[in-house]
């Protein structure tokens, strides 16, 4: 029943970069849960909740938790969109039917972000609502990853944090093993930037 030796911690080799210009950021334990506000447009709240759950679910040791708040005042991450179709996502091959961008806030002289992160969602024309929904589902997880502190893109297309160039869609449905290892490493790395007040 008893072994002679205890298990050794697993190797976590295989990560991609997460810092931006030498700056490392992650939400500190005392700021959890991170407060996400989703503009009440279509099913944007569901997409953001899904993204938060996707990231929280990869952590083993409670390093990150997020919650949706009803008021943008005091939110840590604000997600906005002009329109979001409230339909089931298309199960077919991913297409580049949406575009999102995360605005990382400025840093003050105390190495502290001055305002919340802003994520902007845009729907591209010429696609079915289901194709747009599928694109938004993946891309919202990707952008939430930036708001968690993953400031770089992965070079591997199987990762949710893959950074496609041009009009190529993200193809991963959620964080991969390499995404998980990278975000774990990030959340155990001492940050150089403080969260917004």
């Amino acid at each position: 029943m008893l072994a002679c030796s205890e298990p050794t911690p697993p190797s976590r080799a295989g990560t991609y970069g997460f810092e931006a210009g030498g700056d490392v950021f992650h939400w500190p334990a005392e700021r959890l849960p991170v407060r996400f506000y989703a503009q009440p447009t279509g099913n944007l709240r569901f997409l953001v909740q899904h993204a938060v759950d996707s990231w929280a679910g990869v952590f083993l040791y409670g390093e990150f938790r997020g919650t949706l708040v009803a008021d943008s005042t005091g939110a840590d991450v604000i997600v906005q969109a002009d329109s979001v179709p409230d339909v089931p996502p298309d199960p077919g091959a991913p297409v580049y039917a949406c575009n999102e961008v995360t605005a990382v806030p400025p840093i003050d002289t105390n190495n502290r972000f001055t305002e919340p992160f802003h994520i902007r969602v845009a729907v591209l024309p010429g696609f079915t609502p289901a194709q747009v929904a599928a694109c938004l589902r993946r891309t919202t997880i990707h952008e939430a990853g930036h708001a968690l502190g993953l400031f770089q893109h992965s070079p591997d297309p199987v990762d949710i944090m893959w950074g496609p160039s041009g009009a190529a869609p993200i193809t991963a449905d959620g964080p991969s093993d390499q995404d998980r290892r990278t975000v774990e490493l990030l959340y155990h790395t001492p940050p150089t930037v403080l969260p917004p007040p």
């Binding site: 029943m1 008893l2 072994a3 205890e6 298990p7 911690p9 697993p10 190797s11 976590r12 083993l60």
Partner: peptide, 20 residues
């Protein structure tokens, strides 16, 4: 009492054996 502890999530993480 004594037992050996591991969970499916720990196995997925890369732990290959249980801990006493």
């Amino acid at each position: 009492d004594v037992h050996r502890f591991i969970t499916p999530a720990l196995r997925s993480e890369g732990f290959t054996s249980a801990r006493t």
